[in-house]
């Protein structure tokens, strides 16, 4: 449980961090909730850690018009306890309160969770349902990528070498939208065996699913059925169709698919009941 030797830098500015991250072998460190354990087990051995978790430039929650802008370095607890997030993006508040335990939420960051793209992480379900946008920056460049393009595969995102997430952008929830995040917790790790995030209004429905497959996804087939029928059970029945389900000692593929359907139905019903 002792990592290999590495260099550590704590740059004072984002620009400085991006300069350092342009080096080969440099790896950004935010909350360290996934990277540090992997390093201690020697499953990860970055030569240089660039600590971006201390950058104030990446730590903010702002509402700008119809969008919420959340700095990538904002901790889970800061999101969870933010009145602005609670008022304007309750799905994020609810999802983030389900992450791990309070110790993890005090350290882990929204950008770190997204960049790690753990197939069982909670946040990505909400990002899919919210059609979140990720502002990515690297030395001499900036671009915005949507959630559906950002999550590529297990632990794999659209981030390029030297690139980090600077900001997560989510829509301000309109009046009349109900949301819910329903999660089946893996008892050892606290990760989601499956987690389903739902937004529903009289105009639309969005369903994001995590834990089932290699990456979180938007269940558009289930959304279509719900749109036409408003029947949670019918919509939930197809949420796992075509998914290449994960399987481990905590849940087989078929049980995971079953849970995805159950939790989708629960999330749809709860979100609908909160449409108000």
């Amino acid at each position: 449980m002792i990592s290999q030797q590495f260099e550590y830098s704590a740059p004072a500015t984002l620009q400085e961090a991006l300069d350092l991250l342009a080096n080969e072998g440099a790896k950004p460190l935010a909350g360290g909730m996934s990277l540090i354990p992997m390093m201690k087990l020697r499953l990860a051995a970055p030569e240089q850690l660039i600590d971006i978790g201390r950058l104030r430039e990446l730590n903010y929650i702002r509402r700008e018009g119809e969008q919420m802008h959340i700095g990538a370095g904002t901790t889970h607890w800061d999101v969870e306890s933010s009145p602005i997030v609670r008022a304007h993006c309750p799905l994020l508040s609810e999802t983030v309160s389900n992450i791990g335990d309070i110790q993890v939420r005090n350290r882990g960051t929204i950008g770190g969770s997204a960049a790690h793209a753990d197939p069982s992480a909670d946040y990505p379900a909400a990002f899919c349902a919210l059609e979140a946008q990720f502002k990515l920056v690297k030395k001499g460049g900036e671009r915005v990528v949507g959630a559906s393009d950002f999550f590529v595969d297990m632990l794999t995102t659209a981030l390029e070498s030297g690139e980090i997430i600077a900001e997560v952008i989510v829509p301000v929830e309109q009046r009349g939208t109900g949301v819910s995040y329903q999660k089946c917790v893996q008892p050892a790790s606290g990760f989601a065996i499956v987690g389903v995030a739902v937004r529903v209004s009289s105009e639309f429905v969005r369903i994001g699913v995590t834990g089932l497959g290699a990456k979180a996804y938007r269940a558009t087939n289930a959304e279509e059925i719900y749109t036409s029928t408003h029947d949670a059970a019918k919509a939930a029945a197809v949420v796992a169709d075509g998914a290449d389900s994960n399987s481990d000692i905590h849940a087989s593929a078929s049980y995971r698919k079953h849970l995805a359907r159950i939790y989708t139905q629960r999330a749809l019903k709860e979100a609908a009941s909160r449409m108000g």
Binding site: S120, D153, T156, N246
Partner: peptide, 12 residues
């Protein structure tokens, strides 16, 4: 320690 990710990793 990688139990939960092994199958997905193999597939990937």
């Amino acid at each position: 320690v990688g139990q939960r990710l092994l199958e997905s990793t193999s597939k990937m």
